[in-house]
């Protein structure tokens, strides 16, 4: 009780007012029972919710773990070592494939380390691309197309006509032949 409360402290007045205004009505047991039942239900409901939340959290953690395991199990296999097609030639498709795997941050076979720096990166993609368009025989490999001479074709017969250019020896001038035609008198 503070001093300012003492200032308004009149015991006789308080007793008289308390006697006049305080009601001592009996509370039926049914009211107490109803309150007790409401409290019990409320706290039991909370316990159930807490239990459900705990189970839910456990279930969510289990699902998350299962997803992580499934993802790790189904991770794409490393890129096949230098899939160079039937003729073992590097092509731009190989460069594109390598670039895609790099972008997806997937594990890549060490054989794609084209520049031998121990790291497979954009430089290796560039190297594959460069190799694929290079005209050097050593780069193209041994399975390049045979030359005409190797095939036994010495003269390019029919090449001109095939290309659409008129071949002179076989050309027939219709105008000249028309001039030489004699008209019967």
């Amino acid at each position: 009780m503070t001093d300012q409360n003492d200032e308004f402290d009149f015991p006789k007045l308080g007793d008289a007012l308390s006697a006049a205004y305080t009601h001592h009505a009996a509370i039926p047991t049914s009211v107490d029972d109803a309150m007790r039942a409401a409290a019990t239900e409320r706290f039991a409901q909370r316990r159930r919710m807490r239990l459900m939340a705990r189970w839910g959290a456990g279930l969510a953690a289990g699902i998350a773990a299962a997803i992580v395991i499934m993802v790790s199990l189904h991770r794409p296999a490393p890129v096949a070592p230098l899939a160079r097609g039937f003729d073992q030639q590097l092509t731009m498709i190989d460069a594109l494939t390598l670039a895609k795997h790099l972008a997806a941050k997937e594990s890549i076979d060490k054989s794609w380390d084209m520049n031998g720096d121990g790291v497979i990166d954009q430089k290796d993609v560039d190297a594959v691309a460069t190799i694929s368009v290079s005209l050097k025989p050593r780069v193209l490999g041994q399975h390049s197309l045979p030359t005409l001479q190797q095939l036994g074709i010495a003269h390019p017969v029919g090449l001109a006509s095939a290309s659409g250019m008129p071949a002179k020896p076989n050309t027939v001038s219709l105008a000249k032949s028309a001039d030489k035609t004699e008209v019967p008198q």
Binding site: H23, A25, R36, A39, T40
Partner: peptide, 22 residues
Amino acid sequence: GDPSAFDALYHRHKAWVLSLAT
């Protein structure tokens, strides 16, 4: 989550609340 604690609060204050409500 202790229901007996609420029960104790109820029994401690119910008479005053009823008087005030009256």
